[in-house]
Simulated assay, not measured.
Amino acid sequence: MIPEIGDEVVVSCEPASARVVAVHSRRIIVEWPWGVIDRSSNFRWDGTFSFPGENSHGEWVPYRVEPELSELRVGDVCTVSIPPARLYVGHYEAYDPPRNLGWFPAPTAGIYVVPPENSDVEDAGCMLYLGGAQPIRVEPVED
């Protein structure tokens, strides 16, 4: 399936464990459980992912963290996932060759997803990378 702008899709990602490396009022940073740093890349990904904290207004990611972000401290282990969610496609792009973003395996596609409640708000979504290390599933909505 190659999604088009405006398509409604179900996005999910199986849970994985991650360790919290930093906690700020606006951000929680974890060691990303998927992918390996590509030291030969010109892009210097450090192996982490930053989640908007409780005081981050306007930022959104489809990922869920358990326990709640407000309960996490540096060194804690949490679970990161994307429970099945109905989202809208804001943009889709295929990468041939796979896109060099600083990690292995490099993604073969990217999909910008937006929650239904913000489908008409520009920059209200999140870019997800497909075909790489993250086991993200994108399926058409079948009602």
Rank of each mutant, 00 (worst) to 15 (best):
V77C: 11
I82F: 07
D120T: 01
R26I: 02
N42D: 13
S119C: 06
C78T: 13
E66G: 07
I28K: 00
R73D: 08
H57K: 12
P97I: 11
P67C: 05
V10P: 04
D38H: 09
S56F: 03
H24D: 01
P62W: 14
R39A: 15
E54W: 09
V89P: 05
F43Y: 14
E4N: 07
L130Y: 02
C126D: 07
V113D: 03
P116W: 08
E4F: 08
R86E: 12
F51R: 00
D123I: 12
E14L: 12
P3K: 05
Y95I: 03
R19F: 13
E4W: 08
N100L: 09
R137Y: 05
V141F: 10
I29Q: 00
V30M: 01
A106E: 06
P107W: 05
E122G: 04
V23D: 02
D38I: 08
Y112H: 09
S81F: 10
G75C: 09
I136F: 05
F104A: 06
P135T: 09
P97Q: 13
A124R: 13
D38W: 07
G6M: 01
R39C: 13
H24N: 01
V65F: 03
D7P: 04
G47L: 10
A109F: 08
N42L: 11
E8Q: 13
I2A: 11
C78W: 07
V80M: 08
A94D: 06
I29D: 04
Y88K: 04
G58V: 07
W32C: 00
V121F: 04
